[in-house]
Design a protein around this nucleic acid. Structure first.
Lengths: 159, 159
DNA sequence: GTCGTAGTTGAAGTTAACTTCAAGTCAAGT
DNA sequence: ACTTGACTTGAAGTTAACTTCAACTACGAC
């Protein structure tokens, strides 16, 4: 009966870094921010469970969609009981992301179309040119924020 | 013959701020960065020519497309002789921007499609999931930069 | 000439998301 | 036991694009 306990099943920082693509410093940062957790060796070094790889994949996906780390943290905090997002969690969350992507794509498309109708015109009127005007998205943007799209102003509260 | 000289044809900072939508502090900042220029009164106050409104519209349009201020500065610096972009300049530059927008839209669309094919799957495999993987755009991003899209990482050197 | 509003400057602050550094400790192969 | 490479921490630095502040000066209507 050779059922080894495999206590060595835990990953070191560099293991996780290599396998996730995140820098070790980012992993430590995420831990400070409460997005990740790890056990420690008697000597104080981090040891990660393999599930962090999935969590990191989740984080990367969310960031790719344009979510801020705060939003990712909120999403993770909103998970029922446990921690690592399950298939169901993922499905629910990603469905919401889809809408976000759709909005971003739509905004960029409007911008491109505006550009098309402007090429050769050169008006660039602050009053009428659809392109240089902070037209539709404008409103939001918190205090101190410039006008708009920067399509990835991920912090844009589109509400 | 009442041809008034209209020396009062110059705009103050707040005039420009109101008409362009940029904060006065942003105008001063742009001037320091060499994107804008103004004459001064004997007392040292700024007085802008109306053409800055067009320049600001240009800047806003460029930023909306995702260009960094450095890139805007470079674009302005690359203009033949004068300063304010002419209709022709605008047409040439904006045609280049269109490509940029197309790329951004394509990247987001790929991401969305990846999401669609992932919803319900929940694999989020770092190796195979198209969504959490730093798949196609990855390469670029300078040192210290995370993996990718943040579709508006405006500083992405897509070269 | 007075007064209140508007403008000036340089320096420092802001936010996000990390990275870099210094100084020192741990893990593990030989 | 030794050595080397990996790891730890807190603090400070980084970048973009501005904003805020403090202390002070100019403009211009009356």
């Amino acid at each position: 009966m050779v059922l080894s306990m495999r206590t060595t099943d835990l990953l070191t920082v560099s293991d996780v870094a290599k396998r996730s693509g995140f820098a070790p410093s980012a992993l430590r940062f995420y831990e400070r921010e409460g997005l990740l957790s790890a056990t420690r060796t008697s000597g104080g070094q981090r040891r990660y469970h393999r599930s962090v790889l999935r969590q990191l994949a989740f984080i990367r996906a969310a960031r790719n969609v344009g979510l801020s780390l705060d939003e990712v943290a909120a999403a993770l905090a909103a998970l029922p009981d446990g921690r690592t997002p399950t298939r169901a969690d993922w499905a629910r969350l990603s469905r919401g992301w889809r809408g976000r992507l759709d909005e971003q794509i739509a905004a960029l498309t409007r911008l491109r179309d505006g550009l098309d109708s402007c090429i050769g015109c050169g008006c660039l009127s602050l009053k009428t040119c659809a392109f240089s005007n902070p037209n539709d998205i404008a409103a939001a943007a918190g205090p101190g924020a410039a006008y708009l799209p920067r399509p990835l102003r991920s912090s844009a509260r589109i509400s």
